[in-house]
Design a protein around this nucleic acid. Structure first.
Lengths: 225, 225
DNA sequence: TTAAAAACAGGTATAAATACCTGTTCCGCA
DNA sequence: TGCGGAACAGGTATTTATACCTGTTTTTAA
């Protein structure tokens, strides 16, 4: 991957030492210009309005401290930046490697995610990647996204054998149809539908429809998208 | 991003010309070795079993033609590889830039996604990135993932106001507890639990628990992971 | 600082789902 | 080729969920 023209970088980070450290590291590379910095999420939008040189890439600390009572975390900064400056790339820096954290951020418009204990080379790659490719997602982040999307590669194998008829009834059940409605649709008796449902309960180890629905979603029998 | 040691690459692609073309391009770079190739999805697993040098990165054509009647597309190859060779990185090559296609693939274990009309440099970057970082997702792919996750975000905003008590009952309902069990757990009457459930049905526009469970999953009130 | 709204608790019928059965048919396999 | 197993269809009680109410308390906003 080649670094083309200079990249303007902004930093939103409350810890002074960390902020200065990152700045020092970034300035070690010729084509990185730190053109913006802010210590808290609240002032970011305000300060950006007064700036002539907008950052291409904004590094945002996830754990920005809420000012007053109102929450305005890295997530909110991300949301606001995505809304106001759609061309700006947001690269999250965080101490968390919690899957949910990562997924939430990416879902809300972050272009990349990096844990804070990454080495300088990783930071460099992430910035370049975010700038040139439009995103930076490493293996850890991808895994988080996949698991939050309900990747079910493993479970596919453990699938109990659901018969075609049972699957059909499961699918219709997930569409909030009652046994009676399913019976009408399939031209069979309500009792038969309930019979199949009971077999499904046993096969999937569920106690009631709730379990069936969750099973169906987990095993990609129905999609909730 | 620096290319470290040599990368062993496999190609699963039915179009001979395209396969040869990619091979020629890859061989132009010193540290890329094409060690495996296959024209269809079916023979991949079989052939891999007989191979001594396993590919680090497998390029998989998404639109592999189904052999006979049985479907065995790039998706199936991806699933099979993820299952059998968890360390192998799967990089999808596709003519489609359909969001659903991309998301499905990533969900099922692909480590990267690249449209076929990308230039050689992009292919190079993708292979290196998949190999060293464990993933390659460019702006287009990220957008697809985000938008497929995005429905959740929208729904979050349109969220009807579920009261804390209702959310609690919804959560327990999703754990396959009956109204009676929930009542015991919360030290309230079964009638009260049912009252809350009814309010939930109305608020979420559901017909029965099935709808509640799907609502809860869609809105991240419960996790199915 | 009160009205209004919403949360919370509970009640009564009724509809639906669940537990537990029987019998037939169809298919793989030894 | 006929045996075992599973799919499919149906039936009977019983349990559980749903529809539709009333009243009290707590929040919200004008």
């Amino acid at each position: 991957m080649e670094t083309t023209s200079a990249i303007n970088i902004g930093i939103v980070e409350d810890q002074v030492l960390f902020r200065e450290g990152v700045k020092a590291i970034l300035n070690n590379w010729d084509n990185f210009n730190v053109v913006f910095e802010s210590a808290d999420g609240h002032s970011v939008i305000e300060k950006l309005g007064k700036t002539t040189v907008l950052p291409d890439v904004m590094l945002v600390d996830l754990s920005l401290p809420p000012k007053d009572r109102k929450e305005f975390s890295g997530l909110h900064v991300t949301l606001a930046l995505a809304e106001l400056y759609p061309d700006m790339k947001v690269l999250i820096l965080s101490v968390h490697d919690d899957e949910n954290f990562i997924t939430e951020l990416v879902k809300h418009g972050a272009h990349g995610y990096l844990v804070k204990d990454s080495d300088p080379q990783e930071l460099h790659d992430a910035i370049v990647s975010v700038h040139t490719l439009g995103s930076y997602i490493n293996a850890r982040t991808l895994k988080a996204i996949q698991s939050s999307m309900g990747r079910k590669v493993k479970a596919k194998k453990l699938l109990v054998n659901i018969s075609p008829r049972e699957e059909e009834i499961l699918r219709l059940t997930c569409q909030q149809l009652t046994a009676e409605e399913i019976a009408e649709k399939l031209f069979i008796s309500v009792k038969t539908v309930n019979g199949h449902r009971n077999n499904l309960l046993i096969k999937t180890g569920s106690r009631n429809v709730t379990g069936l629905v969750i099973y169906a979603i987990k095993n990609d029998i129905v999609s909730i998208i």
